[in-house]
Design a binder for these strands. Structure first.
Length: 364
RNA sequence: GUGCCUAUGGUGUAAUGGUAACACAGCAGGUUGUGGUCCUGUUAUCAAGGGUCCGAUUCCCUUUAGGCACC
């Protein structure tokens, strides 16, 4: 259940989203715990960054460890000992990026997708129904419709086809979703939220059409599909702005895969409410640290740079995390030069704390 | 001490009588519904001296350093 409390002058929608595992204030950012963990960290450490909710992935968890184990553990929350809200991504993006990268790894058809597991090469099939069933088995608080996610640079015809499939699959997802909540007698707060994803590449009329058709079906929220940047890495400002406008004000807006701190601020001002992105953790693992979130002026450093080899100042003097406050940049530089996982973990935690602080400011 | 072998960027290795290539390492970029393993750029080398030759990193000699064998 989503309610907007106020909209700031700059357009930021401050509201609350109630889930079975807690209330989230918008706008908010969720790190990607794709395989039910944020690489290198424990959930206890993640909580120290101010993180309230996590994104997990249907595709990855279905392949490993598999549903039997997660169900036997009593659901994903218990399995990974996370008491806050969880959102599962449908696996659409993963399957399509896999197939678009290497067509031999799978086949997209109008009624289903077949693909080979990147883990052991075994063949699998995903349908909209199956994706929803898996997400119910995971027991998450928020789920996403299985969508056809085309790269933005696809031809007009291919984009149209992907939009058509995304809409038809969203219908099937909704139907299966209703069947599941009836069967499981889930209502009120226990009912997981279901989000649809708007596709259409950079073609605004396709985005608009896709959004309208999805709204006719009716969902708790609507997401922005495909990468939010073009091939050169330029942010698709206009596409994001317009797509937000195509979504009813009462629905929550989920900008999937967004983004850099700059992109998140821009999107929040356009009225996007929720975000997830690999940037803080992935770039952290590669040595980039986001700093200075006390004001909106922030910067980033590459701790691998030789100039940090003798920098004995704190990694992040403003951090609430003990190690980030006490350990020096010189030491972190050394950890990275040694390719030590502890360094990558500290950088990941620093960046997640930075992101949560940034979103905190957007909510004030 | 004698004999043989080797000497190419920071490291490990190529090739070649017409001034040198590759991999790591180094330096620096990139990463947007997850690549810890990825991508891109970039710095840097013929042990020293002499000889042959139009021209030597390459062939010859000496020195130096290392390895192996013998005494």
């Amino acid at each position: 259940m989503f309610k907007i409390k106020e909209v700031s002058k700059s357009g930021i929608r401050r509201g609350i989203l109630k889930t079975a595992h807690g209330v989230l204030e918008t706008p908010f950012y969720m790190p990607d715990a794709t395989r039910a963990y944020i690489k290198l960290t424990s959930n206890n450490e993640i909580q120290q960054t101010g993180t309230k909710a996590l994104v997990v992935n249907t595709f990855h968890l279905y392949l490993q460890p598999g549903l039997k184990i997660i169900e036997a553990a009593g659901g994903l929350h218990k399995f990974m000992n996370w008491s806050g809200p969880l959102l599962s991504d449908s696996g659409g993006f993963q399957v399509f990026s896999l197939i678009h990268k290497n067509p031999r790894l799978g086949k997209i058809e109008d009624d289903k997708v077949t693909f080979k597991s990147p883990i052991d090469g075994s063949s699998h099939e995903l349908t909209p129904e199956k994706s929803i069933q898996i997400q119910f088995a995971l027991g998450v608080d928020m789920m996403v419709c299985f969508d056809d996610c085309p790269p933005n640079e696809f031809s007009r015809l291919d984009l149209e086809l992907a939009v058509k499939r995304t809409i038809s699959w969203a219908k099937r997802c909704k139907k299966e979703y209703l069947r599941q909540i009836n069967k499981r007698k889930l209502s009120g707060l226990k009912r997981p939220l279901l989000f649809a994803v708007i596709q259409g590449g950079a073609e605004l009329d396709l985005r608009e059409y896709c959004a309208k058709e999805l709204v006719k079906i009716g969902f708790d929220g609507y997401g922005f599909g495909a990468r939010p940047v073009d091939e050169k890495g330029n942010f698709l400002e206009e596409v994001l702005r317009k797509t937000a406008e195509y979504i009813p004000e009462s629905a929550i807006r989920f900008a999937l895969g967004v983004g850099t701190p700059e992109d998140i601020i821009r999107c929040a001002k356009m009225g996007w409410d929720m975000f997830d992105c690999v940037i803080p953790t992935r770039e952290g693992r590669h040595g980039k640290l986001f700093l200075n979130s006390q004001s909106f002026n922030f910067t980033n450093i590459n701790i691998n740079n030789a100039k940090y080899s003798q920098d004995f100042s704190a990694i992040n003097s403003k951090s609430k995390i003990y190690d980030l406050k006490k350990l020096t940049r010189s030491y972190l530089h050394h950890l990275f030069k040694m390719n030590e996982a502890l360094g990558q973990k500290l950088a990941s935690l620093n960046n997640l704390e930075f992101y949560q602080n940034l979103l905190n400011k957007l909510r004030k």
